[in-house]
Amino acid sequence: MKRLRTTALALALLAPALPATAAESVNLILNWTPTADHAPYYYAKSQGWYEKAGIDLTIEVGKGSGVSSVKVGSGGSAFGIADLATMLVAKSKGADVVALMSVYANTGQTFYWLKSYGVDSPKTFPNHKIGNPPGDASRVMWPAFAKAAGIAPDSVSFVNIGPTAKIASLKSHAVDIISDFYNEHDQKVKEFGDDLGYINWKDIGLNPYGNSVIVNGAYLAKNPKLSEDFIRISQKAFAACVADFDPCLKSLLDAASGLDKENQQKQWERIKFLMTDEFTTTKGLGWIDGGRMQKDYELVQTYLGMEKPFAVDTAFNTKLLDPAIKMDASKVKK
């Protein structure tokens, strides 16, 4: 009997150690292809932060905020990145989505054009072609921009182009105007110089929350601790990247081929500006303000209509954020 116990103990010591609990497979669908604003997720994953919390994270390339909102809202992905106004539209159509953390406290939505094409302001957009992907947030919210600009929504035509083909399409005159995020601004300046014209949506009086982390509502109710861990790890990663972007950039470049290092570094400087407002610097990095959300809701309701109205406080939750992690405004270039 003693020999049997000794043999059993020896076998147990030789057996590979197994984790107490298996990591939970979790999917995060991006709003588009990976760029600098996604670097924190790749950095946190490369550092093993999600894994340590029992999260086996898969990062899925996206095809627009409309697509990511619908996929998360249907339960096809636990988490996603989406423009918040676009998410509200999806929620009014029945998508089960909740915003947990803002990335862009200021809208990144921007229209770009070439002056040589006869465009000098939104007033001259009519009878021109705008190029963007069909799921692009700026196309979903176009009626709001058109009304704010004082032009008819149907006065322009849209051309479907891929997210990586925007500059080439503008350069070849396949389109006259493109929509893009402000974080890509320096790339346009480098390519087109003084011929470039642009307007950020906030300059016309529209400043809805931009890209944010969203979650499936049923998933959040079933997995509150995992959801909190995911958000706080992501929040921690963004703060780390604000402090020092170099290791975050390396993680992004290792995971996504074909990105230009210098361009991504410049993007991140723009992104830090978009991340900064009175709430993210005082309440917590990624904070979503209820008053601003109400205005965003009214914006969507006014210009697009709500298929099924809902209480705006059901569309976001800031309780999972760590208030000790704040946006460091000293790292933002003026």
Rank of each mutant, 00 (worst) to 15 (best):
G76A: 12
G54D: 14
S74M: 13
L88Y: 06
I59N: 05
Y42D: 00
K52N: 14
F79N: 01
A82K: 03
S65I: 00
G66T: 04
P19G: 13
S77L: 10
V67E: 15
A44N: 02
V26T: 15
N27S: 15
G64Q: 07
E60H: 13
S74C: 09
K91R: 15
D56R: 13
T21E: 15
I81Y: 13
G62I: 01
A36V: 07
A20E: 11
A20M: 12
K63L: 07
M87H: 02
G75Y: 12
T86P: 01
D83Y: 03
S77Q: 13
W49V: 07
G75D: 09
A53G: 09
N31F: 02
A90S: 11
A78S: 13
L57A: 10
T58D: 11
V67A: 14
S69E: 00
A20R: 12
K45V: 01
Y42M: 00
I81C: 10
M87F: 02
D37Y: 14
G76D: 12
N27F: 10
K71Y: 08
A85I: 07
P19T: 13
I81E: 09
S68E: 00
M87K: 02
P40C: 14
V26Q: 08
P40D: 07
L30E: 02
K63S: 07
T33H: 10
S74L: 15
G48A: 09
G62S: 04
P19R: 11
E51W: 12
K45R: 10
T58S: 14
G48F: 08
Q47H: 07
P40Q: 11
A78P: 11
I59S: 06
L30Q: 04
V89I: 07
E51T: 14
S68I: 00
Y41K: 08
A82P: 02
L88D: 03
I55N: 07
A78Y: 06
K71Q: 13
S46E: 01
P34A: 06
G73M: 03
A85N: 08
L84P: 08
M87L: 05
F79L: 11
P40V: 04
I29W: 04
P19N: 14
P34K: 05
M87G: 01
Y43L: 01
V72P: 01
L88N: 06
V89D: 05
V89G: 05
A23V: 10
A90Y: 03
L57V: 09
A90K: 13
I29T: 10
E24K: 13
G76Y: 08
S68D: 00
D83V: 02
Y41W: 13
G76V: 08
A90G: 06
L84E: 08
S74T: 13
F79Y: 07
Y43G: 00
W49N: 08
G66D: 04
A53C: 10
K52I: 09
L30A: 06
S69K: 09
T35Q: 12
A85Y: 03
S69T: 04
V70L: 14
A90M: 04
G76P: 09
G66I: 01
Y43M: 02
I55D: 03
P40F: 09
G73W: 03
E51Y: 12
V72D: 00
P34E: 04
A90I: 03
A78C: 10
G54W: 15
